[in-house]
Design a protein around this nucleic acid. Structure first.
Lengths: 149, 149
DNA sequence: ACTGAAATAGAAAGACC
DNA sequence: GGTCTTTCTATTTCAGT
């Protein structure tokens, strides 16, 4: 993972469908050289795939919220994961330090929908209580946030 | 945005570099038809781009945390945005309902790094106090969370 | 308006040095 | 790592529904 790899990943983060030759021209490599590095990054697991960026609002998922889960003692993370995986509205979930056990990010079509999802999640048997906030406006959403400065 | 568009977006969400002909075979369209629909989705703003999925750990950003910001009265969201945009460690930030004014997602290389970022953010002049949690383990990270069920 | 088929332009993948 | 060649894909054109 050298400076060249990083520049390649940054280029792909901005546009994952950019041609290797194009990226190569930017970083000073030939197209095959760029491809080889991308292949290596994938093999190593640094790049885990390519995906599309979507506008939640346009896709009818304009209502975003965060739900903190307070779980029963001895709830296994795997159980939380399994339960949440059944909700298509759940975008991400992580166990966290602090009072809550997990934070869940939810995208719903509207407030009514969000409320319904919240109630269903709160009704999961391992959930003791929840605390939720609604996202007012996304200030920042980085494409490749996971890159060293 | 019909059922076909949705299936195409789902396919791209799983692998944005998949060939149009390939996606077409799955949804029952020819390659040009798929391309035309993708172009339309981009034009409409439903698809905002293509990006790469990265493993934060492998990229040296294995420490994730969430920081709640409690801001001075009359702090404009734009000011928060401008300030946070200067931190490469900030992956996302949103204003929220509830006690806190904003929630910031940060990826750092390690605890020391996270602490440094937290202190710098806490030191921003519009920030009165912060409350932060560390992410223990990501349970779920959906590729295309923003799609209608 | 949207589709598929065919033709062209372009990029990716592989062999080779 | 670059160069060259082959193969595949994207893109455009055109015509049909």
């Amino acid at each position: 993972m050298d400076a060249l790899d990083e520049r390649i990943v940054r280029a792909l983060a901005e546009d994952a469908r950019r041609a290797y030759a194009d990226i190569g021209a930017e970083v000073g490599l030939s197209a095959p050289a760029v491809k080889r590095r991308v292949d290596r990054l994938r093999a190593r697991g640094a790049i885990t795939g390519f995906t599309v960026r979507i506008d939640p609002a346009v896709m009818g998922r304009g209502t975003e919220g965060l739900i903190e889960l307070y779980c029963r003692s001895r709830t296994a993370p795997a159980d939380i994961r399994r339960a949440l995986a059944r909700y298509p509205e759940v975008a991400s979930a992580s166990t966290v330090t602090g009072e809550a056990d997990a934070v869940v990010q939810v995208f719903a079509s509207d407030m009514r929908h969000f409320e319904r999802v919240l109630e269903r999640i709160a009704g999961e048997d391992f959930v003791e209580r929840t605390k939720s906030v609604l996202v007012l406006s996304p200030l920042l959403r980085r494409h490749a946030p996971d890159l060293p400065a």
